[in-house]
């Protein structure tokens, strides 16, 4: 494989003198444009693996993209976007400023930023919500804004950490399909972490299962 993500023997440990192994020598590859679901129970290490790939927590082993090792690349230069379970929207910024944050960091000008924010809000079904306070959003709206914020700077890999688990069942089912369509429309590569097998099947082409910090089995999701 030449293009895409390669994770090799990644281990994440928490704690000082008596460390707890959260991820134990995980290895897998994902082609550019592909999608993968990491499925497992709570505490199985799937979120830690995702955070290690994003570079926001320490790990040993190697994470590479297009055969370039990312060990010395800080998270803000990896070009990997991260969507959190509860959105983690910046409470002091409006919906528009949240979505435009990544573009602002890239130095994109105000006009171009506003255009892209408007386009993304249209895509996630929240047209005209630029000035709304993020504290006023419903759970579903918050996750849509979080996804739009992650997609705005056009990341080469999107990492989604239980993006729908804080929502009720009906909304979860509907959004799972919507998110997948959006990610495919963006032509991006993505990894979604979930504890729900049907959600994993709806959101990714391939599944890997994690248990006790190890990747234990793989399977194909429903193509869609």
């Amino acid at each position: 494989m030449t293009h895409g993500l390669r994770v090799h023997d990644v281990t994440v440990a928490y704690g000082g003198s008596h460390p707890r192994i959260a991820v134990d020598r995980a290895s897998f590859s994902l082609d550019q444009g592909g999608s993968l679901a990491l499925v497992g129970a709570s505490g199985s290490g799937k979120s830690s693996l995702l955070l290690a790939i994003a570079g926001v927590i320490d790990s040993v082993g190697s994470v590479s993209w297009d055969q370039h090792d990312l060990a010395s690349v800080p998270p803000h230069r990896r070009g990997f976007g991260l969507v959190f379970q509860d959105g983690q929207l910046f409470p002091h910024l409006s919906v528009g400023a949240n979505i435009g944050f990544g573009l602002e960091m890239q130095g994109v000008g105000h006009r171009e930023r506003a255009a892209r924010v408007g386009e993304l809000l249209d895509m996630v079904g929240l047209a005209g919500a630029q000035e709304r306070a993020v504290t006023e959003l419903s759970g579903g709206e918050r996750q849509r804004v979080a996804l739009a914020r992650t997609l705005a700077p056009r990341p080469r890999l999107v990492l989604l950490d239980e993006p729908l688990s804080s929502l009720d069942a009906d909304l979860r089912e509907r959004l799972a399909t919507e998110v997948r369509v959006l990610l495919e429309a963006h032509g991006t590569t993505w990894i979604v972490v979930t504890h729900d097998r049907s959600e994993a099947a709806a959101m990714a082409a391939r599944q890997l299962t994690m248990s006790g910090g190890r990747l234990v089995e793989s399977g194909d999701g429903v193509q869609g």
């Binding site: 800080p74 991260l82 983690q88 944050f101």
Partner: peptide, 9 residues
């Protein structure tokens, strides 16, 4: 982490 993955140093 959200800010960092969005490109903030």
């Amino acid at each position: 982490a959200a800010a960092r993955t969005l490109g903030a140093s």
